[in-house]
Design a protein around this nucleic acid. Structure first.
Lengths: 275, 275
DNA sequence: TTTCTTATTATCATTTTGTTAATATCAAAT
DNA sequence: ATTTGATATTAACAAAATGATAATAAGAAA
């Protein structure tokens, strides 16, 4: 091996193509909570988590649904890619975005070797409404069932129902506590079911120890509305007094009052950074 | 844009080199706890966290310390890379390994565009002893100080002291709650200080809600030893009764007794998976 | 006016933590 | 042999957090 006298000299001689290089994409799991107002296809008014999916109009996986995503440019900052894609799909800036996990299975893309860094983004659906890319659609999570480390998720956008099943394999020492394997998947492209599951779990965990949830809320909200969002994310009912104790230090009561709901009106609250 | 009749046809025509591709490395933060027995350079017997670093003998960053790592091969499963490197550095299989974060700053590698997926690995130092790559060295974390979102970490391997400072920038909505910036760094290559910080924070958080710590413990240990490890990771003293309540369901008492320590002997315990 | 529905809070029991202190037991020093 | 030092282990109690029920409030709709 040739020895160099300085870093400059080494770099001048370095050829990046000595190794076969690969491609990187960023995929974004955009999560929100469906408000019954928007969801004209639903009769009951229970809220659901919802996921923004895109219908692929090109190969590979033509006509299947997938997460918004795209290649990270050679000269593009890693985080710029998801921001760019988010802007393009929702026309919104300044949205909550966090890196989830990097998936790199050898066969996850039939074209070539593609590594994908996935991100999770949380938004308040009311912020967009109009501008939605035409082949984008919100899918409600109408079923999330976990039994013996097998998770089944069913999504529905009002016209179409899609579902997948993932098995969480408990591995003793190696790698993360769990590794996920897609068991059944009829219509979501790539390994995107894994991203959806990872994001939902992350959100559920972070609910307890962060203020992440307020990224999905409008500026003013009632505690009842906030509680519903908690319940939808956690998948279980919470008792009022317990819930109010949990969020007591995270919100401030305002003068605004929400009336006209057919029952006692409630004060509206705002998010308050604590500590 | 040309239209295709089938996925096969599309793939036949697809040229991966239409886009400029990039390189991916895996870097591994190997953490352990120093036992005073091994650390002959230390007089006091307080335990410290320790990190395995490698002295670079090539450009770039020649002669600086860095995390063990290497390129992910084009035909290599993403997770195989850190396992391969771990094996190579420690000669151990079946070690706890979890993905931490993917860093992709444009200038993190002077050679070319390199994305790095970082992993954290936890081991019980007693498992290796002998076989350590000759330019590898364990550094104790002799200082970890956080003040006003500025973290300073000082490492020492007995011969050499290195340090770095990182500022945690609180960003309102975009991206993760925090983004990290290296403020000062005299001798660690690449952006590896960020990996070290991310790993230490992850370990500290996961201590509470997982059994991750037992990956750093030998099969049999006293509760005093386990408590020391907790204290080192958390950076604070714990009260005995409180600690014992926390780990009560995670360990089982065995017949073994550890004597000869100059004080009351203690029972040895083993890890017990709960639930 | 009454009924329905959700909002909001009080109240109490239960469980979980925080803290101090008591007792135990071996090694080393006297 | 006895005392001293050090950590192990657990009891005991106070303080705080949580779980759960019930009481009261107030607008909308009947």
């Amino acid at each position: 091996m040739k020895t160099y006298k300085s870093e400059e000299e080494f770099l001048k001689d370095y050829n990046p193509n000595d190794y076969k290089r690969l491609s990187l994409t960023a995929d974004i799991l955009i999560l929100s909570v469906s408000s019954s107002d928007n969801a004209n296809y639903r009769k009951t008014d229970d809220k659901k988590m919802s996921v923004l999916l895109i219908k692929r109009d090109n190969y590979p996986f033509k006509d299947m649904w997938c997460l918004p995503g795209g290649f990270v440019g050679y000269d593009e900052e890693l985080e710029s890619a998801p921001k760019r894609i988010l802007k393009q799909e929702t026309n919104l800036d300044n949205i909550y975005l966090e890196q989830l996990y990097t998936f790199g299975g050898l066969t996850r893309d039939p074209r070539m070797r593609v590594i994908s860094t996935s991100y999770m983004s949380l938004i308040d659906k009311n912020r967009l409404m109009e501008h939605l890319n035409e082949n984008a659609s919100w899918f409600d999570i109408v079923l999330y069932e976990e039994k013996d480390d097998v998770v089944t998720i069913v999504l529905d956008n009002g016209n179409e129902t899609i579902s997948f099943t993932i098995k969480k394999e408990l591995r003793e020492k190696t790698t993360d506590r769990y590794s996920f394997h897609i068991v059944k998947n009829n219509s979501i492209a790539f390994d995107h079911p894994l991203v959806i599951l990872a994001g939902l779990e992350r959100l559920r965990n972070k609910l307890e120890y962060t203020d992440i949830v307020f990224n999905m809320m409008p500026e003013y909200f009632t505690l009842g509305e906030l509680q519903k969002v908690y319940e939808v994310i956690l998948g279980k009912k919470l008792l009022d007094p317990a819930f109010r104790r949990i969020i007591k230090n995270k919100v401030v009561k305002t003068e605004k009052i929400k009336t006209g709901e057919g029952h006692r009106p409630s004060y509206m609250f705002k998010y308050k950074k604590s500590k």
